[in-house]
Simulated scan of single mutants.
Amino acid sequence: MRVWAVANQKGGVGKTTTAVSLGGLLADQGKRVLLVDLDPHGSMTSYFGYDPDELEHSCFDLFQASDAIPPELPSQLLLDTSHSNINLLPSSTALATLERSMVGKEGMGLVVSRSLASLWDDFDYALIDSPPILGVLMINALAACSRLIIPVQCEFLALKGLERMVHTLNMVTKSRPTPLPYHIVPTMFDRRTNASLHSVKEMRHTYPDTVWDHMIPVDTQFRDASKAGVIPSAYDSEGRGVRSYAKLLKTLTAQES
């Protein structure tokens, strides 16, 4: 199984859309895909019609078990989605209490890694949607993944969030045996606005080796697909946003081979 994380220390930049779109395209290719929702807001969980306020079991169960996770537990938490090749490891609002309730507990940064080990042969890809806050949940995502995708909205404030994210990544990389490969992906691009044009130019100037060659455009069909609870490629396989994510997926998989 290949594990990709989608993360940024700023909200509203398209993390969930990126994870669901890429996961959906992989599933369309016949890959078995696991989507992991580590964000207490539960946007990915809500996307597929589940209420993170009402779920009795979620990723939170894994953190409660911590370093003694029963091998059967991760598979018991999986939920079906609108795509037969995609399963969801859901979030719940209880995740928001982790930092406070489990402070000082050892092994908390590797809970997701240990959990995915139990599912390793069941899926081809796992995509992790992480919260926009540096804490135990984001650390878990970064520790578990072999590749990081950083969506960045094409506007000035998002560039500040990107700067913080890259700083965090550099700190985390020091504890890894090998550097973590990452791609910066400009999202919500609107070529009609100076803000979008300037932001992309600034990204390419500051991070020339890690910014993806293309952009994900503003596309209202992402919102419509979310409302319908289906992956974007099932809602409109020829939409401009879906076509852009297909280009991104081609770039990512080419580097995995």
Rank of each mutant, 00 (worst) to 15 (best):
M1I: 15
V3R: 09
Q9C: 06
G11F: 12
G11H: 08
A19E: 05
A19T: 09
S21G: 09
S21K: 06
L22I: 15
L22S: 04
L22G: 06
G23C: 09
G23F: 12
L25D: 06
A27L: 10
D28W: 05
Q29R: 13
D37F: 00
L38W: 04
D39A: 01
P40H: 12
S43Q: 15
F48Q: 04
C59L: 09
F60P: 01
D61V: 08
A68R: 14
I69T: 02
P70Y: 01
P70K: 12
L78M: 07
T81Q: 01
N87P: 14
L88W: 00
P90N: 02
L98R: 06
E99V: 11
V103Y: 07
K105P: 10
E106Q: 10
G107N: 05
M108D: 03
R114S: 14
L116V: 13
L116H: 09
L116W: 13
W120T: 03
D122K: 00
Y125K: 04
A126M: 10
L127G: 00
L127T: 04
D129V: 04
P131G: 06
L148A: 10
Q153H: 07
C154K: 06
F156V: 10
F156D: 00
F156W: 10
L157I: 11
A158M: 07
A158G: 00
G161A: 01
G161E: 05
E163S: 05
M165Q: 14
M165C: 08
V172G: 13
Y182R: 04
H183M: 00
H183D: 04
M188G: 05
F189C: 03
F189K: 08
V200Y: 14
V200E: 14
E202G: 15
P217T: 12
T220M: 06
T220S: 14
T220Q: 08
R223V: 12
R223G: 04
A228L: 11
G229D: 11
Y235I: 09
Y235Q: 02
D236K: 13
G239Y: 08
R240K: 11
G241V: 06
S244R: 08
A246C: 03
K247Q: 11
